[in-house]
Amino acid sequence: MDETGKELVLALYDYQEKSPREVTMKKGDILTLLNSTNKDWWKVEVKITVNGKTYERQGAVPAAYVKKL
C-alpha cells in the first residue's frame, strides 16, 4: 500500500497499450491498483513524468502482467 492506503501492484512485464482504455507500463513499474474485480484486466493508475511534470493516467492492464505488493 502507498501512503494514502491504496493498494500497489508491480509490473512483471512490459505492456504497450492497444486502445485508449489501456495504459502502457514497463517491467518494474509500481502502479496504483484502482479495481481488480475483473479477473483478466485490472484498472490501474500510472504516474508519467514528462519534462519534469508528473501526470496521472488511469487505464486497464492485463492482470497476469502485474502482481499485488
Results as ranks from 00 to 15, higher is better:
residue 65 Y to V: 07
residue 60 A to E: 15
residue 6 K to H: 13
residue 30 I to Q: 02
residue 62 P to F: 07
residue 12 L to D: 00
residue 36 S to C: 13
residue 34 L to W: 03
residue 49 T to H: 11
residue 21 R to I: 10
residue 21 R to P: 05
residue 14 D to V: 06
residue 36 S to T: 09
residue 47 K to R: 12
residue 33 L to M: 02
residue 32 T to W: 09
residue 26 K to P: 01
residue 14 D to N: 07
residue 45 E to M: 14
residue 56 E to I: 15
residue 17 E to C: 12
residue 48 I to G: 04
residue 43 K to R: 13
residue 51 N to W: 04
residue 32 T to A: 08
residue 34 L to Q: 02
residue 2 D to N: 14
residue 40 D to Y: 15
residue 30 I to A: 00
residue 29 D to T: 06
residue 59 G to H: 01
residue 48 I to M: 10
residue 31 L to H: 03
residue 14 D to P: 03
residue 37 T to F: 08
residue 65 Y to F: 12
residue 59 G to S: 01
residue 2 D to L: 14
residue 36 S to F: 06
residue 68 K to F: 08
residue 57 R to M: 07
residue 3 E to I: 13
residue 12 L to Y: 03
residue 12 L to K: 03
residue 25 M to H: 02
residue 38 N to E: 11
residue 37 T to L: 09
residue 1 M to C: 15
residue 6 K to I: 11
residue 15 Y to F: 06
residue 50 V to C: 11
residue 61 V to R: 00
residue 6 K to P: 14
residue 11 A to L: 04
residue 58 Q to C: 10
residue 29 D to K: 02
residue 17 E to I: 06
residue 60 A to L: 15
residue 3 E to T: 14
residue 52 G to V: 02
residue 9 V to Q: 00
residue 61 V to I: 09
residue 28 G to R: 02
residue 46 V to L: 11
residue 27 K to P: 03
residue 69 L to D: 01
residue 67 K to P: 05
residue 54 T to A: 07
residue 12 L to G: 01
residue 63 A to T: 04
residue 1 M to W: 13
residue 23 V to N: 02
residue 27 K to F: 03
residue 13 Y to C: 15
residue 49 T to E: 11
residue 24 T to F: 03
residue 51 N to K: 08
residue 2 D to Y: 11
residue 16 Q to C: 13
residue 55 Y to R: 08
residue 6 K to R: 14
residue 45 E to I: 12
residue 64 A to Q: 11
residue 24 T to R: 05
residue 59 G to A: 04
residue 65 Y to I: 08
residue 7 E to P: 09
residue 18 K to A: 10
residue 64 A to W: 09
residue 60 A to Y: 15
residue 5 G to V: 12
residue 26 K to S: 07
residue 43 K to L: 15
residue 15 Y to L: 02
residue 26 K to Y: 09
residue 11 A to T: 03
residue 67 K to I: 14
residue 13 Y to L: 10
residue 67 K to D: 07
residue 18 K to Q: 13
residue 7 E to K: 08
residue 42 W to T: 01
residue 35 N to C: 13
residue 44 V to N: 00
residue 54 T to P: 08
residue 54 T to V: 12
residue 17 E to R: 14
residue 59 G to C: 06
residue 9 V to C: 13
residue 39 K to H: 10
residue 50 V to L: 11
residue 61 V to K: 00
residue 62 P to A: 03
residue 8 L to Q: 10
residue 31 L to K: 01
residue 31 L to I: 06
residue 41 W to Q: 01
residue 68 K to D: 04
residue 39 K to P: 14
residue 2 D to F: 13
residue 34 L to H: 02
residue 19 S to F: 05
residue 40 D to C: 14
residue 2 D to T: 13
residue 20 P to H: 10
residue 42 W to L: 05
residue 66 V to G: 01
residue 5 G to C: 15
residue 1 M to L: 12
residue 12 L to Q: 02
residue 37 T to N: 12
